[in-house]
Design a protein around this nucleic acid. Structure first.
Length: 271
DNA sequence: CTTTCCCGCCAGACC
DNA sequence: GGTCTGGCGGGAAAG
């Protein structure tokens, strides 16, 4: 009667796994790699500048273009790409640079919820700013260079480059240590960093820089910092996630949190 | 099978 | 009461 079931090695003491350390992390890097590579390819092809893409609902044939919609066509990355294509690099003073969420959602034919994701990551790069409810203002690449410079400064201040290198080394020689609790030695108790804003570009909306700042914007900025401080401009998502989560005070061992952050990282990577 | 990640519920914040 | 904003998990497609 049930002589021997799975001879579980004493890895797990019958308790629940706090958070799968490497498994979930592994997913990150493998996830972004194809996407990033695809993006690079697309960038090359984009140079050709095809003029056949009509964002206003293509094909009303109603025959066969109803089944071929795969998941890739509805990805956030592609959606963001379409969004960026609708605006010039620099805002035209004559045109109104107002962005209405509802209009965008209608134009791109997606739910409102998705626009929020796009806007948050764009806002983290100061390419847009919230002017009012349902309204964003387009800034484009006007401040992008400055934004990246500042983010790089902050990233260096937080020793992100060192941390990434350390984690990589750990991962390289790590082999038999099951309980991987890597406590990064920061010189001082690192504070949660808040939303970075540009000097000279004040935020109209007071609620932006509030302490109520939710994670998406801040995490987006942190992620960009990692790119800016890395020597080859390559950041594996597992390392990124480790830093981004480990920095969160309170020892957030929520793997759910982890997963959620991951999803947003995909979006950021696609911009 | 595992990994990727879209959809959209629903809870807070704001009116 | 409403609307707006965006965490968060489920569960299905992609690998």
């Amino acid at each position: 009667m049930g002589p021997l079931t799975t001879p579980k090695k004493g890895r797990e003491p019958g308790s629940v796994d706090p958070w799968t350390p490497t498994s979930n992390l592994k997913m990150l890097i493998s996830a972004a790699s194809p996407d990033i590579r695809n993006r690079e390819k697309e960038l090359c092809m984009d140079n050709d500048e095809r003029e056949g893409v009509d964002p206003t609902q293509d094909a009303e044939n109603g025959e066969e273009s109803e089944k071929m919609i795969s998941r890739k066509e509805k990805s956030l990355g592609l959606l963001c790409h379409k969004f960026l294509a609708r605006y010039p690099d620099k805002p035209n003073p004559d045109l109104n640079n107002d962005i209405c969420l509802d209009d965008v959602a209608t134009e791109l034919n997606v739910e409102r919820r998705r626009i929020y994701d796009i806007m948050n990551v764009l806002e983290s790069l100061h390419m847009v700013s919230r002017s009012a409810k349902n309204r964003y203002t387009w800034h484009g690449r006007t401040n992008l260079a400055q934004t990246l410079a500042i983010l790089k400064q902050v990233g260096e201040k937080h020793k992100y480059g060192q941390q990434m290198q350390q984690i990589r080394h750990f991962d390289g020689e790590e082999k038999e240590n099951e309980e991987v609790v890597v406590h990064l030695e920061n010189g001082e108790g690192q504070r949660e960093l808040f939303f970075v804003e540009l000097p000279g570009v004040e935020f109209k909306a007071a609620s932006v820089n509030s302490r109520k700042d939710k994670s998406l914007r801040v995490m987006s900025q942190k992620f960009v910092m990692l790119f800016l401080v890395s020597n080859p401009r390559v950041v594996s998502l597992d390392v990124a996630a480790k830093i981004l989560i480990g920095e969160d005070q309170g020892a957030d061992q929520d793997k759910n949190k982890f997963k959620t952050k991951v999803r947003r990282l995909y979006d950021i990577a696609n911009v």
